[in-house]
Design a protein around this nucleic acid. Structure first.
Length: 816
RNA sequence: GCGGAUGUGGUGAAAUUGGUAUACACGCCAGACUUAGGAUCUGGUGCCGCAAGGCGUGGAGGUUCAAGUCCUCUCAUCCGCACCA
């Protein structure tokens, strides 16, 4: 029979659907594996990145099913978000219709690729049931003080007309549409992720080994913990007077307490409250005010180009010397880090140095190198010896930090402080297609949470999407509701949640079985059994955003008593990108390959085989049409050779000793592939080598004709390849083995016993020739024959040493 | 600047973790079968050299009987963060 991918794949996809082959059991006594790939946004069609992602997770899921684990391999859709709304604006479609149509299409694509997802637990985060549970969690978090509403300076995307979290601002631009963001002062809801900063940082240690180093480092940098000293700088009396005694002092933070004696000026962020006060009370000239305004409206990228500042005409008193120190505004001081004010030590900080040079400010050196001279051309930022530092003179600068912080603490003028780059997670979005934040604004009661029995607060479907303003806000009736507390007329919150809220707990929802699907988000017992995720697979682009938020939610849910573990994902595999012509596949570059077209031409098995064969999963994958063709040819050959199998219900018993050399070699290659397969699925994840091993085995089988060896070979090979090319393997397996070989395979050791061994012979480590010996040959005899074989190179030379590496080589060390 | 990674044939990539470098595949070359093939099959294919042989894992050193693998320095590329006080 000729290989026909379409009929074979259709046949087995129908079989799997009919038999619900991939549903996990509720038998919690079985060992489990939770295999999860990051769920897709329903953009309309799968792209090759998706195919790669799910081909990897499917290989794991199918392997562990064969190994008799209870496997959970769920799929869902991260279906809220702006593209749905943008599509609606563009095509005058309804976001819900658009989304669910896309989901239906993508589900068909999943099926046509043969992915073994659990169907029962399929979900879309825009489902009202999902919203209901999520809003319940939000209320719980609010009650615990982990969600709060506050006015703040926010990242605003003028194109998407919404606020963005810090994590969603990439190079000063919107992560979605690349529009430069602007700062906007408005009310916003925040998750108190900073409360967990230390734990999120410390627990990265628990993930070592299971997560790629790169991701751990990125999270560590993002949290950005630094230790230092915080203290107040007090104004002198003239300055206090200027400020009408509204300000006594301001707070600064430094990691370089050792440079305290070198402070020669201080700098405030242009957004600092003292600056704002001075502007509002006409303490600055019109020209200065306009300069500050310019500074504020400059994007963070442009601010980096050149340092600029303005003297405020104020002085503070140096905490150690009591000398006057001028106060400046500087564009490089960021309002959202520390207190928005710094002490400046130009002698030992490059930024401070540049600024001091530009504005001709004093440069007071207080650290000198242990050896050599201090240069005045640049800031000396290395460790050295303190001088001009009062009682601390002569100390090692690094070590003196301890003494100086201690001094501040004893005098009660400052204290040891830890700062983080991590900010609270702003979650409200001024958009329609999201889960409403379940709060109500009441004139009498203020901000009130919705009652849980009223959940979900679903979004209305009869909306008009114009692209201007928030459709929820514009809806004639939706936002009007009774106050949950006093019953008076009140107004609903019209902000919806960041879609990253949905993806922060979907992996927990997947643990819920269909029985209690409606009743509860998940049960403790189910969570206890299924979590943590044994293998999580997704793109590196989520290294910070999603993966940090999901870790945060896990810790919050633990503290709320829903779960009792700290980390959600035991192992993380970050797949590489799919490239074509050296660039990431993207519509804008026009270098995409449509998975549907590949499936139609070659079949899903070919697509999956190519993707897993062309590169290890963590590396970039370069698309190559010829190599896809090659994968197709291999499957055809694989299928074609299966005609050599004799039908059997169990693996054939073979007397190895009577086999020919070729037959023995073929068996060895088959079992080598099996050994490699176990290695790959359990440890290395380099599917490319497993596939290469199978190809070698087929090549070796092909030069012999023993039907038992063929049958045994296919019994094993179609088992280990099933996770990769499931359709053709099920077809062969059902035709010849009644599917009985899709089980754990036992490695037969006898095939590795060789009749003779080929050893390389090296002289001084350089390979010269080889010898063939029987496995029983004694060391002396082996070396003797090695010498004979290499006599040409040994003539007249003095032998210094003879080394035998069993089964590998002989190395003879000679003089000269 | 800080951090993380990666450098192996014409190409994608292997190398049992210190033991015969380039498995497997793509491409290319030759041959067979063909009216023909971009189908199939067989063989060849790191570089230099007629050969013997020499050279060869970004580069330079080092450790070792033995280095793609370990150490030191260095170069290049990619990714992330970045005026973070």
């Amino acid at each position: 029979m000729e290989y026909n991918s379409t009929t074979i794949e259709k046949k087995w996809q129908e079989h799997w659907a009919k038999n619900a082959s991939f549903e996990p059991t509720e038998d919690f006594s079985k060992e489990k594996k939770y295999i999860l790939s990051m769920f897709p946004f329903p953009s309309g069609r799968l792209h090759m990145g998706h195919v790669r992602n799910y081909s990897i997770s499917d290989a794991f899921a199918r392997y562990y099913r064969q190994q008799d684990f209870n496997v959970l391999h769920p799929i869902g859709f991260d279906s809220f978000g702006m593209p749905a709304e943008n599509a609606a604006i563009k095509n005058n479609a309804n976001p819900k219709t658009w989304t669910y149509d896309n989901i239906d299409y993508m589900k068909k694509e999943f099926a046509s690729l043969g992915f073994s997802f659990s169907k029962e637990r399929e979900l879309a985060t825009s489902d009202e049931l999902y919203t209901k549970f999520e809003q319940g969690f939000i209320i719980d978090m609010f009650e615990k003080g982990l969600l709060y509403r506050e006015k703040g300076l926010l990242n605003w995307c003028p194109n998407d007309q919404t606020v963005l979290a810090n994590e969603q601002v990439v190079d000063g631009c919107c992560w979605r549409c690349d529009t430069p963001i602007v700062k906007k002062d408005m009310n916003q809801y925040y998750f108190k992720i900073t409360k967990y900063a230390d734990e999120l940082l410390d627990d990265l240690k628990k993930l070592e080994g299971g997560w790629p180093k790169q991701v751990l480092t990125m999270q560590e940098n993002w949290i950005g913990k630094s230790n230092g000293l915080a203290f107040d700088l007090f104004f002198d009396s003239a300055s206090k007077e200027k400020l009408a005694n509204n300000f006594e002092s301001f707070d600064v933070f430094t990691t370089r307490s050792d440079t305290i004696y070198g402070v020669s000026y201080t700098a405030l962020a242009p957004e600092h409250s003292i600056v704002t006060y001075m502007i509002e009370n006409n303490l600055l000239s019109a020209e200065v005010i306009s300069q500050i305004k310019d500074m504020k409206s400059t994007s963070s990228i442009d601010r980096q180009k050149e340092k600029s500042g303005i003297s405020l005409g104020l002085d503070v008193l140096h905490p150690m010397t009591g000398k006057k120190v001028p106060v400046w505004i500087a564009n490089f001081v960021l309002m959202d880090y520390g207190s928005g004010a710094v002490m400046a030590v130009p002698a030992h900080d490059e930024r401070d140095f540049d600024f001091a040079k530009k504005y001709d400010l004093a440069i007071n050196a207080v650290i000198k190198p242990f050896e050599g001279e201090l240069s005045s051309d640049c800031a000396y930022t290395e460790v050295g010896e303190l001088f001009n530092s009062g009682e601390f003179d002569g100390l090692n600068s690094k070590k003196s930090q301890y003494n100086i912080i201690k001094y501040f603490e004893e005098k009660k003028i400052g204290k040891k402080t830890t700062n983080y780059k991590l900010k609270d997670w702003g979650v409200s979005r001024q958009r329609y297609w999201g889960a409403p934040i379940p709060f109500v604004h009441c004139d009498d009661c203020g901000l009130v949470m919705e009652k849980k029995e009223n959940l979900p607060i679903a979004i209305p479907e009869d909306i008009e999407i114009t692209g201007e303003g928030n459709p929820l806000d514009n809806h004639p009736t939706w936002k009007h509701c009774p106050c949950p507390t006093c019953g008076k007329d009140a107004v609903r919150e019209t902000d919806t949640m960041d879609t990253f809220v949905e993806s922060s707990w979907y992996f927990l929802r997947f643990c819920a079985s269909k029985q209690n699907w409606e009743k509860e988000a998940f049960s403790k017992e189910q969570i206890k059994y299924w979590m943590g995720v044994d293998q999580y697979i997704g793109g590196i682009e989520h290294a910070i955003l999603h993966l940090l938020y999901a870790r945060f939610f896990t810790k919050v849910f633990r503290d709320l008593g829903y779960i009792d573990f700290d980390e959600p994902f035991d192992n993380l595999l970050t797949q590489g990108m799919v490239l074509k012509d050296g660039a990431k596949m993207s519509k804008s570059k026009g270098n995409t390959v449509d998975p549907d077209a590949i499936i139609e031409k070659y079949g899903a098995d070919t697509a999956r085989l190519f993707i897993l064969f062309a590169a290890p999963p963590t590396q970039e994958l370069e698309w190559n049409d010829n190599a896809v063709e090659g994968a197709y040819k291999f499957i055809k050959r694989f299928f074609d050779r299966s005609s050599n199998i004799v039908k059997t219900q169990s693996i054939p018993l073979i007397d190895h000793s009577i086999l020919s050399k070729d037959e023995k070699y073929a068996r060895k290659k088959v079992y080598e592939a099996l050994v490699r397969a176990n290695d790959v699925y359990n440890e290395k994840y380099t599917f490319n080598t497993l596939i290469a091993g199978t190809m070698e085995a087929i090549n070796a089988l092909n030069v012999q004709s023993n039907s038992d060896v063929w049958s045994e070979g296919f019994w094993i090979l179609s088992s280990i390849m099933e996770p990769v090319i499931p359709h053709v393997c099920w077809d062969i397996s059902s035709e010849y083995f009644s599917l009985k070989n899709l089980t754990p395979q036992v490695v037969v050791q006898e095939v590795f016993v060789e009749d003779s061994i080929t050893l390389g012979v090296s002289i001084n480590g350089k390979r010269r020739t080889e010898i063939e010996v029987s496995p029983e040959t004694q060391k002396e005899d082996i070396i003797q024959s090695a010498k004979e074989a290499a006599s040409k190179w040994l003539e007249g030379k003095e032998i210094l040493k003879e080394i035998l590496v069993p089964k590998k080589l002989v190395n003879i060390v000679i003089k000269g």
